[in-house]
């Protein structure tokens, strides 16, 4: 465990807690894409299949349970909670899951480290995580403006994977044979996808104006 990895995990944890807290306190999910949240629940489910078979550390298991629990709670809130669900904008959040799920599944079947069910599922979760934010970014562009908490949520989500890239670079230089190009490529694609959002987020923050994403 290095500082980049810990910072990345804490940033990731903070992003899901910010979102869960926002939905829980103001009982609203305005501006939040349910599609993205469902994709994240799928990412964690397919990524953590080994949660009960391979014990790595208490920290690892606890964090996996938190990510699984928070992502499914957020989906539950938006789908089932009698007050929160009213603020869900289903007419705007129309991105089709299968446009992302199917290509990632096909890619994972053909490009993976080992052709076993768990390994293909794990690789699928990497590819899917890289693109899971797209429905959320599309929704932000459609709704034209974005409240601070949602902006912070997306920013933290992007920052966590950028920190993981630093962690991979660090491990590459400190651990022998640490080569995982699939993880690296998926992680870089994911961070680049956020890059344009980062650009507009910083612009709005610097000019102290509401964030407007270009159409």
């Amino acid at each position: 465990m290095n500082i980049f990895r810990l910072a990345g995990d804490m940033t990731h944890l903070f992003s899901v807690l910010v979102l869960l807290l926002k939905i829980h306190t103001i009982k609203s999910c305005a501006g939040i894409s349910l599609k993205t949240q469902e994709l994240y629940a799928l990412v964690f489910t397919t990524r953590y299949l080994d949660i009960f078979t391979d014990f790595i550390s208490l920290y690892n298991t606890v964090m996996k349970l938190i990510f699984l629990g928070s992502s499914f709670s957020i989906v539950w809130y938006i789908r089932r909670h009698k007050i929160v669900r009213r603020s869900y904008d289903k007419d705007q959040d129309t991105f089709r899951h299968y446009f992302l799920v199917i290509p990632c599944l096909v890619l994972a079947v053909f490009i993976n480290h080992k052709f076993t069910f768990k390994e293909v599922m794990w690789t699928f979760s990497l590819y899917l995580e890289a693109v899971a934010i797209l429905p959320q970014l599309v929704l932000l562009q459609r709704t034209r403006n974005i409240d601070n908490l949602t902006g912070q949520y997306v920013f933290l989500l992007g920052a966590y994977r950028a920190l993981y890239i630093l962690n991979w670079i660090y491990r590459h230089f400190t651990e022998p044979h640490y080569v995982h190009w699939i993880t690296w490529i998926a992680g870089v694609v994911q961070t680049l996808l956020y890059a344009d959002f980062f650009y507009y987020y910083f612009q709005s923050w610097k000019n102290n104006e509401k964030l407007q994403l270009p159409a």
């Binding site: 790595i56 964090m63 990510f67 080992k114 390994e119 794990w122 640490y178 080569v179």
Partner: peptide, 10 residues
């Protein structure tokens, strides 16, 4: 295998 070491990440 080296792949194991990556599974220690989240």
């Amino acid at each position: 295998s080296s792949n194991k070491d990556l599974k220690d990440e989240l």
